[in-house]
Design a protein around this nucleic acid. Sequence first.
DNA 1: ATGGTAGGCGTCCTA
Length: 264
Amino acid sequence: MRIASWNVNSIKIRLPNLLRWLKQAEPDVVVLQEIKCIESGFPTLEIEAAGYRCAVVGQKTYNGVAILSRHPFTVERRALPGEAEDEPARYIEAIVEPKGINGKRQIVRVAGIYFPNGNPAPGPKYDYKLAFMARFEAHARDLLAFEEPLVLGGDYNVIPEPEDVYNPQAWLTDALFLPTTRAAFRGLMNLGFTDAFRALHSEVAYTFWDYQAGAWAKDHGLRIDHLMLSPQAADRLVASGIDKKPRDWEKPSDHTPVWCELKL
DNA sequence: ATGGTAGGCGTCCTA
């Protein structure tokens, strides 16, 4: 079971790249962020033709998340607990149920999350980021109680450690790297989650390169897209990676996919 | 050198 996360920065612009990547990477489940459209504008037919069912939590112009899956799934949540109807579209959660081997039922719960950027900090946007992270942590704690394979994937907009940014000194006051942000992220991790990429890789690696200032050419990147695994998922982790190729294609997203493989 | 780029029901806002 291969599960991936990708901030596509507009599904309309990125559809050709998404279809190309689905074909070559063959993920079972993908969570997308920043689709930037409402559900009726989502290219469901094209993605279904590629073999994936879709669920969309849409929003015009900004944000928006989706889950794609080759296996049957049911959507469990379309927002975090306690969020209002008009809250930005940043969360989707589903239970994926692949065909069992020997008739054995095996499920994996997958959440797709688009955390607030939070800049400029301090300010109301940063306050919102921290409030979102607190709401998310409370829900993640509840989900852990199910003791099931669980993957929380998305654009966390958090640089966890200095080695996850090309120039930590330049990012000390940024909302993605402030001590308060990193502490909130650690609080979440310390509930018992495993970073699927870092668990298997010690090398420097990034998932995002800004469009500006030749960041991609100079490899000035950040690692801000993460797949967090519950203990039951971490026990099944056999591989993970960051697929840099799509960042080098025509009309790229500024993010590239992160993925993990679970032996269910 | 305080710039630069991308996307969107867009002449600004977000990232």
